[in-house]
Design a protein around this nucleic acid. Sequence first.
DNA 1: CATGAATGAGCTTTCATTCAT
DNA 2: AATGAATGAAAGCTCATTCAT
Lengths: 206, 206, 206, 206
Amino acid sequence: MVISMKSKIIENKKIKENNLLQAAFNLFTKEDITNVSVNDIVKSAGVAKGTFYLYFKDKYQIRDILIQKEAHRLFEEAHKQLEKNDIRNFEDSVIFLINQVLIRLENNPLILKFVERNLSWGVFHAQLNTAIDNDSFNLIKEFNEIATANGYEFENSEVILYLIVELTGSTCYNSILHSQPLPIEEYKPILFDSIRAILSQGKKKS
Amino acid sequence: MVISMKSKIIENKKIKENNLLQAAFNLFTKEDITNVSVNDIVKSAGVAKGTFYLYFKDKYQIRDILIQKEAHRLFEEAHKQLEKNDIRNFEDSVIFLINQVLIRLENNPLILKFVERNLSWGVFHAQLNTAIDNDSFNLIKEFNEIATANGYEFENSEVILYLIVELTGSTCYNSILHSQPLPIEEYKPILFDSIRAILSQGKKKS
Amino acid sequence: MVISMKSKIIENKKIKENNLLQAAFNLFTKEDITNVSVNDIVKSAGVAKGTFYLYFKDKYQIRDILIQKEAHRLFEEAHKQLEKNDIRNFEDSVIFLINQVLIRLENNPLILKFVERNLSWGVFHAQLNTAIDNDSFNLIKEFNEIATANGYEFENSEVILYLIVELTGSTCYNSILHSQPLPIEEYKPILFDSIRAILSQGKKKS
Amino acid sequence: MVISMKSKIIENKKIKENNLLQAAFNLFTKEDITNVSVNDIVKSAGVAKGTFYLYFKDKYQIRDILIQKEAHRLFEEAHKQLEKNDIRNFEDSVIFLINQVLIRLENNPLILKFVERNLSWGVFHAQLNTAIDNDSFNLIKEFNEIATANGYEFENSEVILYLIVELTGSTCYNSILHSQPLPIEEYKPILFDSIRAILSQGKKKS
DNA sequence: CATGAATGAGCTTTCATTCAT
DNA sequence: AATGAATGAAAGCTCATTCAT
């Protein structure tokens, strides 16, 4: 009995926290973070103002947590798909992974809107890198392994990977949300060709 | 006499306006724009609060003017250097121009900080485009001309140019300011090789 | 216990609200509303600035609430007196009611000052009409009933009533406050005679 | 020559002053005086800010001057018409004069709008009374003369006149501008009947 | 744990008025 | 006499944060 009561309380806390996170996410996708007050968040979440401060330091902490969560989920799902499909070729693997992430962003532009509204590429990017490093799936290690197995060799493979992630991120953001400079479907071929061109620098002559 | 009196007033106004712009620039490089109040700006500029509104609508207008000015100067100077040096080769020209801009950013990282603090690559990019378009030096046009003259052909040359600008901007920003993933001097060769790889896609077989 | 705690808070809120209303009323009787700042009101009420906005939208809302309250009380009390006194004659009833209101205004000229200072005859009048219409005591209906019962008939009885109310309001205001054109006690007979003259127009010849 | 130069300057001053008065009148008919800034007035008048203070103390002074002017013109014109028409009957004379003023207000509701916008019945009324007293045409004196000549006698004739002016002013204001309680054309007969009823109190039995 | 009333610092913006030119 | 740039006090209002209940 005591245990179930406690667990119920804990469960209740989790619900409150999630309500706040969800409410904040919704508001942050509609308005710049400076135009969202803690009042707005607690009203939308249906809790009292003081309750907010029991769970979070301020609205910026809630934003960072949201970004971390989304970035983590994004890569986890892309990774799952990569494992399901038995792609051996090096360039294809990289393109596949990137494409998986892009597909998710296309289908859920709220995440991008959220990032745009909060002008937080910097924060998002930092979290993305953290996600890439810490994930059970170590992207860099795998990148190197597949590269070597396929006869590629890079002096500085992480930098090449970083460069590709940045190129993709900064251009696809505008492409998905504003079709600038091209709609994402038209832009992808050009992007992917450029990525292959970059990767092909590492191809060893046999 | 009348003219000199009037011109003195006009001169004085220019000084006040510049004081405000300079003060705002300094503050914007130190703090996020949301943490800089109009009060801070006028105090730093040594003018009264009301004076600010004689010259600018709000602090966001002052930010946009600053960004436009900086972006314009950046490209103007880079362009001058390109004209001084008689570089004919296509890839070399592109790399030279990018390098000139990067050298200026390396020497004045405040401009980069300013842009970071305002997290406005988007704005910066828009201003850049305006500067590029309106300038006597038309980047896109020249890019195409030199490309053709050197036996390069792109289906979508503006997109390729955009892609290169974004790749450069998003990666060099961290490289210059935080030496991430590498210090700018070490990163440049890798970046330039990747840009050449991207450009080489357009090379026509003769 | 819980109830008493909650009720204490509610009671406290009522006190705060009344403090604000009272403070505003005092200031509005001394100064034109445009010369009374929210700051003045909260200082006088002994609460923080933000508290004001917890209870009212702005100072104009507080003014309207005050006017409504006063207008309502004025007529409620006059009506009570009319019921206590069994006056059957038509002209006497009308004069009695008007006199009751005037007596109250004479004894509490602050209400008149408040109305003057806020130059809000319009608002006051609107509230008065609402009070007349909505009150359990429906003046217009009763006016008609007593008129008919006493052999009076008006083509447009509401207009006659309106005309009398305006005549009374606009002249007694100056009479009570500035004894212009005569002190109220000297003015009343003339006013009442004029009102009777107006009413007598509706007297049917028998 | 010197005289004409001086007179030209004086003329110029008059033009500036009139420009300011006209500009202020236009603005005061569109907006409450608190929402009209000195800046608005000088811009509309086409003069510099400082010039305003060469002619007027503040915007409230300009308002009072405007009200005085309008009130004066109103009665002057009504008076002229009365003289042109040889009306001998007492009640008819009073009604005629009132009707002349009303006709002018109906045809130029800007004056009423101006009064409404500035919520200045009090000020307007004071100026009106001054106009009535000071005018070459002494209303009260004439009122008494015609009354006596026609066999009317009032204990307090000024008070009766005041009462009629107030009744007319406070009700016709709403009637002309808002058709409340009736459009002015429908309201006039009722009003005039009531005025005649009031006046008939003074009729001596012969 | 949860509440929400209360706070007051701090923001943006306006505007009457001055005064050197 | 006329100008208009400069002022800075003061307004309305918001909101993160606290704390008694």
